[in-house]
Design a binder for these strands. Structure first.
Length: 419
RNA sequence: GGAGAAAUACCCAAGUGGCUCAAGGGGCUCCCCUGCUAAGGGAGUAGACUGGAUAAAACUGGUGCGAGGGUUCAAAUCCCUCUUUCUCCGCCA
């Protein structure tokens, strides 16, 4: 979230910057509630100061066996006033919080301005899209033919948008995620295996709530949420902490299954591994000093790209425009892998710099030269495993229906061909 | 799931309604003493978050004893709910 005071004092500037985002946001509401709250706060605090002072006097009188009936009566009346004002405050506080939480991050000045994804800017490309002298099949057909991906069985045991991986398919998925974790660990990321369920506070911390509740799965028993991404548990590890400045930047990588309701995407990407209710992902998370965060975003993006390079998959990097970046993000690079069945680049990683937006929301600070400051948080997929599997099957497919295992994965697969 | 105990500052810990706007240790920081080290002596160690005031400060208010409510003129202290930890029982990969 943004600083309430900052919003109140820079309302016009903020409105102008948010106008480049998609959606509309009620900055005025924040300002109104803020000034109302401030007014009430001054009133109640003056009365509390009085009460504290007189209560001390009463204590002295009582100790000297004097009569304080009159003062106690006065304080009783004052207490009623305080209670009334506090009740009004208790009504306004959650409204103000809600209003502030519903304001998204301000796009960074280097984020291209534009209304939707057509205004995203391509930064660089790597590799060549796969070409072949036979007709390339989509991964769901390759997977079904090799009996390594089984959507009908998943539909039977669970429902649509789930997949059963079988045999070398299951091993391929596991090989990819192990390869990703090992590679990131070599680049200085500490491996984390977090809970796959989180509480409500964590969902607020990273911004999935309150606005996007319908996208998440909630467990009926205890109100926990299935993680939509490892970003949620991993970033929240340091919620309400003061980090050791010398330890920054903190770098974590984590594998989790990710669970998404995919509300509003009915009919899109219904075949294959591209859009599932449950998918595997390795996530990269960083906590940095403010002045280093943009540079760390570049490095994080390259760390994610390294996976695709080692796997020999063609991709491009795109800088998302103001209309397309996520709610909490100030700047985002998407990495898009070449997917032959789509005949275009498909998102496989989203690397974002949240600046101090999440840190303020989660109260994560470090002790800097100027005293306590909010850290900057960043994260990016490194990478979505299911989509990587899909890209490998399609890119490395052979005319006979078999799939060559990319060299980097052979130690993990213990075979050179899936047939 | 059941029963009991606990949660106070960096750590340990005292404190059952008003001279506690939290005692005392330890540790840490600085200073004194000393040729150096040890020992000894002194000072500091509740910050954090919010307000008011100011050109900016100095100054000043509120909240803070696991979290949130309540009782009271007044709560670390009494009551309720929740969380976490420990002990025992049950269940269990």
């Amino acid at each position: 979230m943004l600083d309430v005071r900052f919003i109140a004092e820079n309302a016009d500037e903020i409105k102008a910057k948010l106008a480049n985002r998609s959606g509309s946001y009620d900055v005025d509401k924040v300002c109104q509630l803020y000034s109302k709250r401030k007014e009430l706060l001054v009133q109640t605090e003056q009365r509390k100061a009085m009460r504290n002072k007189v209560s001390d006097q009463i204590a002295v009188i009582k100790r000297n066996k004097g009569d304080a009936t009159e003062l106690i009566a006065q304080m009783k009346a004052l207490g009623e006033e305080i209670k009334q004002i506090d009740a009004q405050l208790a009504e306004i506080e959650p409204m103000l919080k809600e209003a502030v939480l519903s304001i998204p991050n301000i796009p960074h000045e280097s984020t291209p301005i534009g209304k939707d994804e057509s205004c995203n800017v391509e930064i660089r490309r790597y590799g060549e899209p796969r070409k072949a002298d036979f007709e390339l099949k989509p991964h769901w057909e390759i997977g079904a033919n090799l009996k390594i991906l089984d959507a009908p069985t998943a539909a039977k045991i669970t429902g649509t948008r789930f997949t059963v991986y079988r045999g070398l398919g299951a091993r391929l998925e596991r090989a990819i995620l192990n390869f990703m974790l090992d590679t990131h660990a070599q680049n200085g990321y500490t491996e984390i295996m977090p809970p796959f369920m989180v509480n409500r506070d964590s969902m607020y911390g990273t911004g999935q709530l309150p606005k996007f509740e319908e996208d998440a799965f909630c467990v009926k028993n205890n109100g926990y949420f299935l993680v939509p991404t490892a970003e949620v548990p991993v970033t929240n590890m340091h919620r309400s902490e003061v980090l050791d400045a010398a330890s920054l930047p903190l770098k974590y990588c984590a594998y989790t299954a990710c669970f998404r309701a995919e509300a509003g995407s009915a009919g899109r990407d219904t075949r294959g591994l591209i859009r599932q209710h449950q998918f595997n992902k390795v996530e990269l998370v960083k906590f940095t000093r403010p002045e280093e965060s943009l540079n760390e975003l570049e490095k994080l993006t390259m760390d994610a790209e390294l996976i695709l390079q080692k796997l020999g998959l063609a991709y491009r990097v795109v800088s998302l425009c103001t209309g397309d970046i996520g709610f909490s993000s100030g700047k985002t690079y998407d990495i898009e892998v070449w997917m032959p069945s789509y005949n275009r680049y498909v998102e496989i990683s989203s690397c974002s710099d949240f600046f101090d937006y999440q840190a303020r929301r989660m109260n994560i600070k470090f002790k800097g030269e100027q005293g306590l400051e909010f850290v900057h948080t960043l994260n990016g997929s490194g990478l979505a495993v299911g989509r990587t599997t899909a890209a490998i099957l399609e890119t490395y497919q052979n005319a006979d229906g078999s799939v060559t295992v990319p060299e980097a994965l052979i130690p993990y697969m213990r075979t050179e061909v899936i047939r």
